[in-house]
């Protein structure tokens, strides 16, 4: 294996190790298997995110607005002015898939508004923390693009893998360290994917 890359076998080993650690600290990573037997890691989470534009765009609901009849009796047992419902929430779906041609793992993700609308690339960029935006612009060690998911066949965003091995060859390979954990700790925060410090503990 070239420096900074990883074999598929090693990827699977690291993935199993990561899943053990995830379960140990009640994180939400799961191992998924496609119908054709490919294995990938998945994590989903919903977090509050301020999007640049209002999450509810101008909608043409004229068709359905005119529902006149009362649909239920008055209900006073509801929290009024529920401030928290106005929080914009974004549901992230992260997939870690092995890419044989680059011989590195690839982070695929989608981010949805509460109504299931996919965030546009511009909106995705807007939720990348500012200092990562700056770093990505300067160092160009990765960038976000949209691809068909290699296993699911639906459009997913990905952190492009072309510089992953360069990045990983700069991270010292200490005994007991896990390639996937090191890599995800480095690139995850770009996309609000936080890896707890406890993933670094040797168990």
């Amino acid at each position: 294996m070239a420096a900074g890359s990883i074999s598929e076998k090693k990827f699977a080993e690291c993935a199993i190790h990561l899943l053990e650690k995830s379960a140990h600290q009640k994180d939400h990573w799961t191992g998924e298997k496609s119908s054709s037997g490919e294995v990938y890691l998945q994590k989903r989470c919903t977090i509050p995110c301020q999007l640049p534009m209002p999450t509810t765009r101008e909608r043409t609901l004229s068709d359905s607005q005119n529902i006149k009849e009362p649909v239920e009796d008055l209900d006073e047992a509801v929290v009024q002015d529920n401030v928290s419902t106005s929080t914009s929430m974004v549901t992230f779906v992260y997939h870690v898939v092995y890419n044989a041609s680059y011989a590195v793992p690839v982070l695929y993700f989608n981010a949805y508004k509460p109504d299931g609308q996919l965030l546009s690339l511009e909106e995705v960029w807007a939720i990348v923390p500012q200092h990562y935006q700056d770093r990505l612009r300067e160092e160009r060690w990765t960038f976000i693009t949209q691809q068909e998911h290699p296993i699911l066949g639906r459009p997913f965003y990905q952190l492009h893998p072309c510089h992953t091995s360069t990045l990983m060859s700069q991270i010292p390979d200490t005994p007991g360290s896990n390639y996937l954990i090191s890599w995800m700790s480095a690139v995850g925060p770009v996309l609000r994917l936080e890896m707890s410090m406890r993933y670094g503990e040797i168990i």
Binding site: R44, A77, V79, Q80, M89, V93, G116, R154
Partner: peptide, 17 residues
């Protein structure tokens, strides 16, 4: 009066697919 916080629906694209 006991007042309850209502549920907010959250969907993802996979659901609509």
């Amino acid at each position: 009066q006991l007042q309850f916080a209502p549920l907010s629906s959250i969907l993802d694209g996979g659901f609509w697919h």
